[in-house]
Design a protein around this nucleic acid. Structure first.
Lengths: 128, 128
DNA sequence: GCTTGACCTGGAGTGCGCTCCAGCTCGTAG
DNA sequence: CTACGAGCTGGAGCGCACTCCAGGTCAAGC
């Protein structure tokens, strides 16, 4: 799997993938004799999981910690679990907060409906 | 209400408040004869609502659009409602996505538990 | 009268997460 | 043999949302 395949499969740019490697999020893959990166198949699942972490609001710094633990193998399973459990709590809190804010949006939208009902025409025609 | 009171009440910094004013998120308040900003009481509620928009992922650019509509008064009620309705859909989608990702986190945490159960000691003592 | 502290201005700097670029090397197709 | 496209490198640049700073003004308390 060359970088181009990974770009196609993940939707990330090749610059982004190389940057992720540079900062330690993706393990440096072996190269072919032309120097090109040859990614093992599992990289795809790993990047997908990174995407989950990212879209739940985890920052790069913490992802790097997680990636470093992962690189050390099964002995870090407990540490990774604990990191994910802490993150899970943050995600739950974020969902709860979004739910609350959604309710406020609903209220606000209702208020605008009321205003619109009271003054039905945004630029009212002149009445005779 | 001076800027210091608003800082205390909102948790934002005075630089942030002045920056919000500069980019059009907060209407420029009247000044006292010393040139100091004197905020009307409603500013507090407005900033709180901006906080809702922000924490639901709305960018500054869209908040500026909303703020500009607000500054034009009730005639823009429909436009503001539509903007909020579009935003509400994005928030609903975000909540749904977070929920999915939360389930993946749960799965992953379970997997780590299994690994830990299989190899109970992170740095196992040497067996006799 | 002097100090102190809150506030003022314009502009520069920061941290995050990419994104782009110039200039190079391979390897396959025609 | 050459042209082309995919990939390589190190480093600069960008967009967002602030955050900090230097240097100044004003009003009240001692």
């Amino acid at each position: 799997m060359f970088i181009g395949d990974l770009v196609a499969a993940t939707g990330l740019g090749h610059d982004t993938l190389r940057w992720y490697e540079k900062i330690g999020l993706i393990p440096p893959p072996p190269r072919d004799r032309g120097g090109r990166r040859v990614y093992p198949g599992e990289t795809l699942a790993w990047i997908a999981f990174l995407g989950r972490l990212k879209s739940t609001g985890m920052g790069i710094a913490e992802m790097r910690v997680y990636a470093a633990l992962r690189a050390q193998g099964d002995v870090t399973a407990a540490a990774r679990r604990e990191l994910l459990e802490r993150h899970r709590e943050r995600v739950r809190a974020a969902i709860a907060a979004l739910g609350e804010n959604l309710a406020v949006l609903d209220d606000k939208i209702e208020i605008y409906r009321t205003i619109e009902a009271a003054a039905p025409c945004p630029t009212p025609e002149i009445q005779p």
